[in-house]
Design a protein around this nucleic acid. Structure first.
Length: 831
DNA sequence: CCCCAAGCTTTTTTT
DNA sequence: AAGCTTGGGG
């Protein structure tokens, strides 16, 4: 055997080996979390090439993110050598489609310079469409229309079909908007994300010669994360592979795990993986159940959660690595409290367990939750990095800068041109813009073409009416500036040079430089960052054009920005972004019904099942240590609201969990203060006697499931006020609550040892039955004291808020600003 | 046409 | 709480 082949298959377990060497029939690899999925995929490609069964150019590998693609390339490069992989396609669905569409633009009926619109651009265009088509944007918000159009495209529904299927008036409006939007999109020589897939399918279906060309080329198609493909992507795969009846069909390998399907909201359908054997009757299926990532405790927790989803193919992850540490649980009073626990644990792990910051990840359900964690990290001096959130490429200044470049590359790009027409301000307001738009509509040309008619009237269309002399001249100048950029691009100037030109020439940089808004300073920094991205790109790809760079930039994802080997920083991200990653230590935060599972999923069993898969993904990211935390109250838009424990916590066998704190202060007070237990105690999880495992869960299950759905608005109570009001208010609220949140009602009676006894952060005031009324702990400070803060300087304490260890001081600093600071953390010193 | 202030929506998750 | 849109005044 070839030594390269030997090296590739060495160390694979029997199932992995079979998956790697399988030949012929379509192959489905059902790969549980951490079962070596990526390794199988990479090894299979390596094996195909090393064994001579395929040439590199015959391989198309689809990954979920650009980062995954990059990693796969790197691995293959070291296994096979750099030249072997040059002709191979390893990319995301979207990148692969762009590549196909750019070269098949003739079949598509578009110019190859088309712009790719992101969701934001698409919404802007939809808004323009609504205005022009007189669609009532109150009854039909552009945002929602845009989303629904996206859904339609993911299902390959054309505007005509949508119109045919429209039963009610609402769907008719949608179909109308869709059709008009699509016309505008084409006129702007642009495609949105969903178009990229749908149009590629279109081209392949309607042009047999084109389809044939790609089928001959790609003899082996491999798709990762198959459970997250949508209808359009499925059809794309089918179109590229060909069917068994075609004599030149390729070999298909898909890898996935139905339990990790978390993108239904963007059209992904679990059906694709579940029905693979139906779609391809001769298919071979291989199960990978041995996990090489996590401890058994973590896997048992994951299994416990996912077992509650019905109708799944049974699968049980196992490992031979032993139980490992127990899962650590913590019930916090607030999100600040929760974050404080995370901080203290990270400190402890660094001291006692040799864990470094880079080993730790903190997950949350929604991006908004990162704030509380960040605040505490900043105060504690823990270095961290947030992945996602307000994405770099969605920042206003970045979108503006890129709009200039898009307008240069694609003179018909309506959304980009209209975005920058008066940015920076040039005195071209809504009125002039509207005049150009009218002209464009009147002659059925793009906005960009109409804009050219202002200074340089088209022989047939004539000049644009309704524009003043001054505006006219400004517009002509604007057009000629873009034209100069275009000339640069055509002469082959580097992307960073054109960016430079556009930002200087347009006055955009001057606008920021002369601004006294402090935000504009960071905008300049961001633009400098963008510039260096362009420089790097040019260095790495000397022959690439501006359009190439824009393509790359248009298709980056959050996960892509995760640099490898960030040793010195804790990573913060949503669970969605965390998919496919792993960390020695993982904190899954916000495990509350209403947060995770998300509020909007609680009424729909299918959505709840997806949330559960999301929880499954979250816990299976952990290699050695898993923390699960929840906050009894959390600020969600403005005011703090109470949240009951996540039902997912209950689905983890309690024997696996070491509760550092198992009850919130409010719950403890409520429980000890009430005369009877009839109104139920909120926070207490199952008591020790319930720790046995599954039997109990079956009993709890229906109760949990029958919950009416949590209605947070009714329960919104200021937590601090609540505490001050004490027992009575607590009892009243408890009664109010039990109906809505019976997920947690009436189970535990006793306080666990952990809650009653543990020192440090866990021992909140009021946690024990004897704690009496809560009082602020002012750490020896008093109102009126002068203090000094590490970064804010000198100040005076104006007031105290909160109680016990959650006491905060309101401090007015010499700068004039007033801050609320948690005394437990704030570096405040009395002077 | 531009600026400012009041008021209103926003929280899923993302290629 | 914050960012964005809308409306009135300059």
């Amino acid at each position: 055997m070839d030594s390269r082949v030997q090296r590739i298959v060495a160390g694979l377990n029997p199932q992995q080996l079979e998956a790697v060497t399988h030949s012929g029939a379509p192959l489905l690899v059902v790969a549980g979390a951490g079962s070596g999925k990526t390794r199988v995929l990479t090894s299979r490609i390596g094996y195909l090439i090393a064994s001579g069964r395929a040439a590199p150019g015959q391989i198309l590998a689809i990954t979920f993110t650009n980062k995954a693609a990059r990693e796969m390339r790197e691995r293959l490069e070291s296994a096979l050598g750099g030249s072997a992989i040059r002709t191979m396609w390893v990319s995301t669905f979207h990148s692969a489609c762009v590549r196909i569409l750019r070269s098949e633009h003739d079949a598509l009926g578009m110019r190859s310079t088309f712009t790719i619109y992101d969701a934001q651009d698409a919404q802007r265009l939809m808004k323009l469409v609504c205005r022009e088509e007189n669609i009532d944007i109150r009854a039909h918000p552009p945002k929602s229309l845009s989303r629904r159009v996206s859904d339609l495209k993911n299902d390959l529904v054309t505007p005509e079909q949508a119109a045919d299927d429209a039963a009610d008036q609402d769907s008719q409006v949608l179909a109308h908007a869709y059709a008009a939007y699509q016309i505008r999109l084409r006129q702007a020589n642009a495609m949105d994300f969903d178009d990229l897939i749908m149009s590629t399918v279109d081209v392949l279906r309607s042009h047999p010669d084109v389809a044939d060309h790609y089928r001959r080329r790609f003899r082996h198609i491999l798709v990762d994360e198959y459970q997250d493909t949508n209808r359009a992507q499925y059809e794309l795969v089918r179109a590229l592979t060909g069917t068994a009846e075609d004599d030149n069909h390729g070999e298909l390998t898909v890898v996935g795990d139905a339990d990790q399907s978390i993108y239904a909201f963007r059209g992904a359908t679990i059906r694709n993986i579940e029905d693979f054997e139906k779609d391809f009757p001769e298919a071979r299926t291989i199960l990978l159940e041995q996990n090489y990532r996590s401890t058994q405790s973590i896997l048992s927790a994951a299994n416990g959660i996912i077992a509650n989803n019905s109708g799944r193919r049974p699968k049980r992850l196992w490992t031979d690595r032993g139980d490992g540490e127990k899962i650590v649980g913590y019930v916090a009073d607030s999100e600040a409290d929760e974050s404080a626990f995370v901080v203290s644990e990270i400190d402890r792990l660094r001291d006692d367990a040799g864990i470094s910051y880079g080993d730790v990840a903190v997950f949350y359900r929604t991006n908004a939750q990162s704030r509380a964690v960040e605040d505490m990290f900043v105060r504690s001096g823990i270095p961290y990095r947030v992945i996602g959130g307000t994405r770099f490429y969605e920042r206003r200044e970045i979108k503006d800068a890129l709009a200039y470049l898009h307008a240069i590359v694609n003179r018909d790009d309506t959304v980009s041109i209209r975005r920058i027409l008066n940015m920076p301000k040039r005195g071209l307001g809504a009125k002039s813009e509207e005049a150009v738009a009218m002209h464009a509509a009147r002659w059925d040309v793009s906005f960009g073409a109409a804009l050219c008619d202002v200074g340089d009237p088209h022989p047939e269309r004539g000049p644009v009416s309704g524009i003043g002399k001054k505006a006219s001249a400004t517009m002509a100048g604007f057009v000629s500036m873009l034209e100069s950029g275009r000339e640069m691009a055509e002469a082959g100037a580097a992307p960073d040079a054109i960016l430079d030109f556009a930002m200087e020439e347009s006055g955009y940089l001057d606008m920021l430089r002369s601004s006294d808004d402090p935000q504009d300073e960071s905008r300049l920094e961001n633009l400098a960052e963008l510039h260096s991205v362009a420089v790097d790109f040019h260095k790495a790809n000397p022959d690439a054009t501006l359009a190439d760079w824009l393509d790359q930039v248009s298709l980056v994802s959050d996960a892509d920005q995760l640099a490898d080997g960030d040793e010195g920083e804790v990573t913060l991200m949503t669970v969605h972004t965390a998919k496919g990653l792993e960390f020695p230590v993982v904190f899954v935060t916000g495990l509350e019904d209403g947060t995770f599972p998300h509020m909007r999923s609680l009424i729909d069993p299918a959505e709840l099942a997806e949330e559960r898969r999301l929880a499954y993904v979250a816990v299976t990211r952990a290699r050695q240590r898993l923390y699960i935390t929840r906050a009894a109250a959390r600020a969600s838009w403005g005011a703090p609201q109470e949240f009951p424990p996540s039902r997912f916590i209950e689905e983890i066998p309690d024997s696996l969990i070491d509760w550092r704190r198992s009850e919130s202060s409010a719950d403890a007070m409520r429980r000890s203060g009430g005369r009877t237990g009839t109104w139920g105690s909120g926070g207490r999880r199952r008591s020790e006697s319930f720790g046995g495992g599954y039997g109990d869960e079956l009993d709890d299950g229906p109760v949990v499931g029958s919950g009416k759905g949590f209605v947070p608005g009714k329960l919104g109570v200021d937590a601090a006020k609540q505490k001050r009001r004490g027992k009575q208010a607590g009892a009243a609220r408890g009664a109010n609550r039990s109906g809505a949140a019976n997920a947690s009602a009436g189970v535990g009676e006793s306080v666990s040892d952990a809650a009653a006894g543990s020192p440090g952060l866990g021992a909140a005031d009021g946690a024990g039955p004897n704690a009496g009324p809560s009082v602020p702990d002012t750490y020896g400070l008093a109102v009126g004291d002068s203090v000094v803060h590490k970064s804010f300087g000198r100040g005076k304490i104006v007031a105290f808020e909160g109680t016990g260890r959650n006491t905060t001081a309101r401090v007015t600093f010499s700068s004039g600003q007033t801050k609320r600071l948690a005394l437990r953390f704030a570096p405040l010193e009395k002077i």
